[in-house]
Design a protein around this nucleic acid. Sequence first.
DNA 1: CTAATCGTAATAATCAGAGTTACAAATTAG
DNA 2: CTAATTTGTAACTCTGATTATTACGATTAG
Lengths: 149, 149
Amino acid sequence: MKRDSRLSTVLHGLLHLADRGGSMTSDELSRCMGTNPVVVRRIMGGLREAGLVTSTRGPSGGWSIARDLDTVTLRQLHEALGEPTVFAIGNRSENPGCLVEQSVNAALDDAFAEAEALLMDRFGKVTLGQLSRDFTRRHAAYKTRPQTG
Amino acid sequence: MKRDSRLSTVLHGLLHLADRGGSMTSDELSRCMGTNPVVVRRIMGGLREAGLVTSTRGPSGGWSIARDLDTVTLRQLHEALGEPTVFAIGNRSENPGCLVEQSVNAALDDAFAEAEALLMDRFGKVTLGQLSRDFTRRHAAYKTRPQTG
DNA sequence: CTAATCGTAATAATCAGAGTTACAAATTAG
DNA sequence: CTAATTTGTAACTCTGATTATTACGATTAG
């Protein structure tokens, strides 16, 4: 199934932005993320509406992060993307007349709701700041790694 | 996103089979599930390989449940369907060279793995027998409901 | 003014599940 | 044995969603 990778994509962009320190154009972001500038604008647009980033037009314009990195959680980003469907598995019909299907749906819905709640809870505890520091750590380890070739 | 409804579909069929007591043809199952007999065979085929149902060809053939209803869990059914992708959200690239993307993937993978583990745990605790009894309860309530029209 | 840059609509490409058709294989009934 | 029923399965289309691309308008710095 085709999965929604916008959260992964936008995180990638935001961390590059954070690493850079200043602002980046859609074109720069798209190149370092391996996608298209229009896709970048589309995704970042949701974050701008949520007040997480700002954009400026014209020469020397581009995208900047508007908040302290430690105050932005994955959950906020998920919400800024419009809270896309989390599960690739779902009920055949959401309003079945068949009583058998009602029982099936009730059981599945319960389990999915619980798993989604856990995921959102986890997302609420991970901040951009944490990810940025994790990247810095990986970067340091990469630079000092033993040469194997 | 288009969601995989095979688990929901197959549960529906199995509970009708359980309610019937005997065997049903793909055609009968497809009609009471609102789908196509070939789709039924395709989905039930996986369950047959897992030993959960049996099929017989020819006249008076069809599908039967091969196990005690209380020994079949949603998790077993999920596995019999080939453990389809659970999440509609995923990483942009699973093998990124970019260290930023590695940090992003690690954080997301952790959260998703935890949520999936919870879901599988829940699925492991729900049996066909429980769902069948839940249906019987709904059916009784339906028959004795106050007439509102 | 001109070039750079975002904003956005419209459209195509891509992908996986679901639906359908067609036919072979197996089995029962007579 | 023959005919009818039913599963098994390949091949193809349909559908719906994300992603990619094209095109062009709006804004702004220099």
